[in-house]
Design a protein around this nucleic acid. Structure first.
Length: 508
RNA sequence: GGGGCCGUAGCUCAAUGGUUAGAGCAGGGGACUCAUAAUCCCUUGGUUGUGAGUUCGAUCCUCACCGGCCCUACCA
């Protein structure tokens, strides 16, 4: 049986959940749902990253212990994901005992393999930032933020021998052309490796809020080194190694473009150092960019608004959960940056959802009511719509399979458009009740049934609602895609109610 | 400063070393009236950021420049 293990990054609890986080989570969720629908044994992992200096500082500012602070913020992510209907199988927190255990075992292994050594980190330190800068990133010896002269500081740290993996990483990239997708992002990582790798410091003595280094209790691991390992914690590394064998070869990390270096360079090297094959695939997504659009009252703010100021729940309250999921999946192609705007959401909502999909369901139900006494007819096996449906099924599958929800949904809307056109061509509302009208409407109902299946990874609730409206029983995703996605399965004979609009139009 | 990604129709996005560079929305014209003033058909619109080079041929390759963005010790 095929397997699919997908992860989001773990989200840093210093931050409140915002649309950017939601973008990543929704994409991962839709991918997980797609693979479940196809019968793949699927594991979907998300969670929160809870160590590090900034968390400790934020906790202190709020007069809380770090863990208590993390408890609060981590819960905000789980609440946000519940709102967005994110179907994660596991939500990991890096403060959990299982994670401590895996991190310590993993890094002990790397240590025993000779890839961790002690040295002195020397760097330029900005007292105001409480942070180090490299010579390159400093602005002529001054802090780029505070413009203050940086002081040279040193700290004894444990280092990871990243430089030892330059060739091995390049070989791995060469042998696995799709290790990082899209390929422009792969090239970015590849050329970074070719430019030469330096060893990196992986522990800190200056802070205490982290996972202790097992062989040197004065140190805690630097937050990123602990964080990356979460992907292995959740599948039992060091605790249930048969689970690692089962899932790791089918692993997919969905990440934002700003953390390519961690996932495309450091992480595979760390895995190699631990004697483990790297993650099988890293899918990079771009950023949503906020233009200078007007904002609604609920989001009104003076001046420019950053994406990180917009909470997912503000959007779902205003537009609904599935429409927001649809927008995030449909509007931009995964891998490139995309534009985020309320006008864009409204436009997608009104055209794609209300006018095309919602109206199609409504008009078919209405004509079934007026011409068939409300009783759903059966589809015609050799309908011309059948070709459209089969094309949509094939192209949507291809899109979803190559991590392109955008392409999957675009193909699905092709069938919706063809079905609307099919109705125009045959105009069943002009026909006398009888076999002819029943064939047309049966075909339309069958197309709608297939559309419901195809949109279910993106809009699970709406898909189920449509499923029920056309009188079908059970869950839309209750059987495998292969069984659901073929023409001619719609069984009529039951009453259909028109119901209220699925997507009432939004005034612009 | 260094490394990298991106720059395609009014807008949001596709595509490819080779016949007339595509889609949706918006705009224009027509049809229809079952439906959420929805739908359907037709249609306007691009010297593919700028300048040079390689090539029989470049939007795609090379270089420079302009603009946006990411990384450069803790931000999807």
């Amino acid at each position: 049986m095929a397997r699919f293990y997908i992860t989001t990054p773990i989200f840093y609890v210093n931050d409140a959940p915002h649309v950017g986080h939601a973008y990543c989570a929704v994409n991962a969720d839709a991918m997980a749902r797609w693979h479940r629908l196809n019968g793949d044994e699927t594991k979907f992992l998300t969670g929160t990253d809870e160590h590090g200096q900034k968390v400790a500082e934020a906790a202190e500012k709020n007069s809380l212990e770090p863990l208590a602070w993390a408890d609060q913020t981590s819960k905000r992510f789980r609440d946000a994901w519940d709102t967005l209907n994110i179907s994660y199988d596991d939500f990991i927190r890096t403060t959990e005992p299982r994670h401590y255990e895996t991190v310590q075992k993993f890094l002990t292994k790397v240590y025993e393999n000779g890839y961790i050594y002690k040295d002195v980190y020397r760097g330029l330190y900005c007292v105001s930032c409480e942070d180090y800068y490299t010579e390159e990133s400093a602005d002529a010896g001054k802090c780029p933020i505070h413009a203050k002269v940086l002081t040279e500081m040193e700290e004894e740290n444990w280092f990871f021998k990243l430089s030892a993996f330059e060739d091995k990483l390049l070989e791995y990239y060469d042998a696995h052309p799709d290790f990082v997708t899209p390929h422009t992002k792969r090239n970015e990582a590849y050329s970074f490796i070719k430019g030469g790798l330096k060893d990196i410091s992986i522990t800190r003595t200056s802070i205490k809020w982290g996972i202790p280094v097992p062989w040197d209790d004065k140190h805690v691991f630097y937050v990123w080194y602990d964080a990356l390992i979460n992907y292995l914690t959740a599948i039992g590394y060091g605790r249930a190694d048969d689970e690692v064998e089962k899932w790791w070869p089918h692993s997919h990390h969905l990440i934002g473009k700003e953390i390519i270096r961690f996932h495309g360079v450091w992480w595979p090297a760390m895995c190699m150092a631990a004697g483990l094959e790297p993650v099988s695939h890293v899918q990079v997504h771009g950023w949503l960019l906020v233009g200078g659009q007007k904002l609604s009252k609920t989001m009104a703010a003076e001046g420019s608004v950053r994406l990180s100021d917009i909470a997912p729940v503000q959007l779902t309250t205003e537009f609904g959960v599935d429409p927001i999921r649809y927008y995030l999946l449909r509007e931009t192609s995964l891998g490139n940056d995309g534009d985020f705007s309320l006008e864009g959401i409204t436009a997608r909502y009104n055209t794609d959802l209300a006018n095309n999909l919602g109206n199609l369901v409504a008009r078919v139900a209405a004509v079934v009511g007026s011409k068939c006494e409300g009783v759903a007819p059966n589809p015609y096996l050799n309908s011309t719509l059948r070709q459209s449906a089969e094309t949509a099924i094939r192209e949507a599958s291809e899109g979803w399979n190559r991590f392109s929800p955008q392409a999957g949904l675009e193909a699905t809307w092709g069938l919706i458009g063809d079905t609307n056109a099919y109705l125009e061509t045959h105009a069943p509302w002009k026909m006398e009740p009888g076999e002819e009208v029943e064939v047309v409407l049966g075909d339309a109902l069958e197309a709608i049934r297939i559309v419901a299946v195809l949109i279910s990874p993106a809009m699970p609730s709406v898909a189920q609602e449509i499923w029920q409206r056309i009188g079908l029983e059970g869950q839309v995703a209750g059987e495998l895609f292969a069984a659901r996605a073929s023409w001619g399965q719609f069984q009529g004979g039951h009453q259909i109610e028109k119901g209220t609009p699925l997507f009432p139009r939004i005034a612009e």
